[in-house]
Amino acid sequence: MAKTILEVKNLKKYFHTPKGMLHAVDDVNFTIEEGKTLGVVGESGCGKSTTGRAILRLHEPTSGEVIFNGENILTKNKDEMRLLRRQMQLIFQDPYASLDPRNTVSEIIGEPLKLQKIIPDKAKRLEKVYELMETVGLAERLVNTYPHELDGGRRQRIGIARALAMEPKFIVCDEPVSALDVSIQAQILNLMQDLQEQMGLTYMFITHDLSVVHHFADDIAVMYLGQLIEKAPSGMLFDKPTHPYTQALLSAIPVPSLNKKRERILLKGEITSPINPKPGCRFAARCPYATDRCRSEEPKLKEIEPNHFVACHLCD
């Protein structure tokens, strides 16, 4: 069995709001093995991005443990955390907003190397920048351009090069291809796949696009209102979705093919508010199979077959 690189235990992140406590991430548990990709899917507001950020301590978790390479990083102080950040990086969703418009490509990619004092020498740093640009497929001539001169696909390549500059082991990818056109999206996904193979990277891949995770991830975790409701290896999840929400989510994907008509499960209503959630299963209000037990007692995540975890009373 492969080595576990990241283990998240009982992770919680609550935000105070004027209306009450917002349970953005509520008691989430999972592990990721080294060199693998965990896809985290769910709809807007389900807490997938907050989970990614809480793991990197960009949002300080309310409680829980994040164990990276055997150490609980939530107990680290600022200096120790700075060193750890070399190994844990983030790729952002919006390549238009995540790059400083006043910096050139070389300044953006070289900045982490400068800040972390890995390559203080400017000329040597530029060499490394060229190397990184080549790795992600950016032409050398672009080294002194500004982000606004480049298209979305190239900008996202800059974001990836910047994340790779630290030679990280683990990268949280927050919707890295959602803002891109399909033909460019496929280029970036292939690049990320190549980098993973070459460098042994581990990804946590956050997305709302189920076809993308199905293609890209080894394991998939489905989140609903701050909770992890189902987790399984990619193939298993698509063959045997067990949680009623997962079933509805998968059936809602529009498939670009005419040969197979699928039964669609239409959900009523929309995702409810994560502020002061009611007791019981959070999906119960929209669930076609909900019983009284679902409305009063919260289902726990259980392993229903090897590696397949579901939080639903129906599985009992």
């Binding site: 298209d151 696909g153 399909v182 033909s183 460019i184 999206q185 496929a186 280029q187 996904l189 292939n190 796949q193 189920l210 076809s211 993308v212 199905h214 293609h215 890209f216 193939g235 698509f238 998968l250 994907i253 498939v255 670009p256 093919s257 197979k260």
Partner: peptide
Amino acid sequence: EGLFGSLPNIEIKRNRLSPIPGL
């Protein structure tokens, strides 16, 4: 053809996508 090749399809699992090169 290129558009279809770029799309991850949940019905057919492929190892790699075949994107359209260039912009």
